[in-house]
């Protein structure tokens, strides 16, 4: 067993996420998976087979909005935690201009990135927007408790909005997950809470410097 500050190869590690950060993220993520499969089951016939995951149509219809609420709360906490890391700065704009370098793993050419890169930040705000949209529209189309308070045209618009936001969020999270998988070492950040020095310096050099600098004291 490696010590908490070393990976299995003995490389030293940097703490990136606290226990609470991680739990909060994974609650959100698990909710998302459940919501995605249950939502997609209702989304289109091609994915109706997904009703099985929550135990059939009625359960899907019943559980989805409640899970949605849990996810929303959990996500809101997550947002509170990470909000300050996601302020867009000048380097982010440069980073975006060099998307080609980003995609081709030429990070050395990119400006120095802090806690999160522009992609992550944008994703963050897209998620915030989509989640808000999903919550508001989701409540309106929540037939069992709320729909009857709204005129039919609003319900229709909400259904459309919900589907659209769901589409957006699902695509975004696909990208998000892929990024976690693509950028090796990221998963560990969210699983163990730590990253290697190399990972930190390569992907988030400014953050790396900050953390190291802080660790002096």
């Amino acid at each position: 067993m490696s010590s908490p500050n070393r990976d299995k190869d003995g490389n030293p590690l940097i703490q990136r996420y606290s226990k609470n950060d991680r739990s909060n993220h994974w609650v959100t993520a698990i909710c998302f998976i459940l919501l995605a499969v249950s939502g997609l089951a209702m989304f289109h016939p091609a994915t109706s087979w997904m009703y099985v995951f929550l135990g059939g149509g009625q359960w899907t219809r019943i559980l989805h909005p409640f899970i949605g609420l849990v996810m929303f709360i959990s996500f809101a906490l997550l947002v509170a935690r990470f909000w300050h890391h996601n302020k867009i700065d000048a380097a982010d704009k440069q980073w975006l201009k060099q998307m080609d370098d980003v995609l081709n793993n030429r990070e050395e050419k990119l400006p120095k990135i802090g806690m999160y890169n522009a992609g992550q930040k944008i994703l963050f705000f897209v998620l915030v927007g989509a989640m808000l949209g999903l919550l508001l529209s989701g409540v309106v189309i929540w037939r069992a408790y709320f729909s009857f308070y709204f005129p039919i045209e609003i319900v229709r618009l909400a259904a459309l909005l919900h589907a659209f936001c769901a589409f957006v969020i699902i695509c975004s999270i696909i990208v998000h997950i892929y990024a976690a998988f693509w950028v090796k070492g990221s998963i560990g950040a969210m699983v163990r809470g730590t990253v290697s020095y190399g990972w930190a310096r390569k992907h988030h050099p400014r953050w790396f410097e900050e953390v190291v600098r802080k660790s002096r004291d």
């Binding site: 219809r61 189309i141 037939r143 729909s147 039919i152 259904a159």
Partner: peptide, 8 residues
């Protein structure tokens, strides 16, 4: 499933 989409 009681989703109420038919209503909309």
């Amino acid at each position: 499933i009681g989703c109420g989409y038919c209503v909309a």
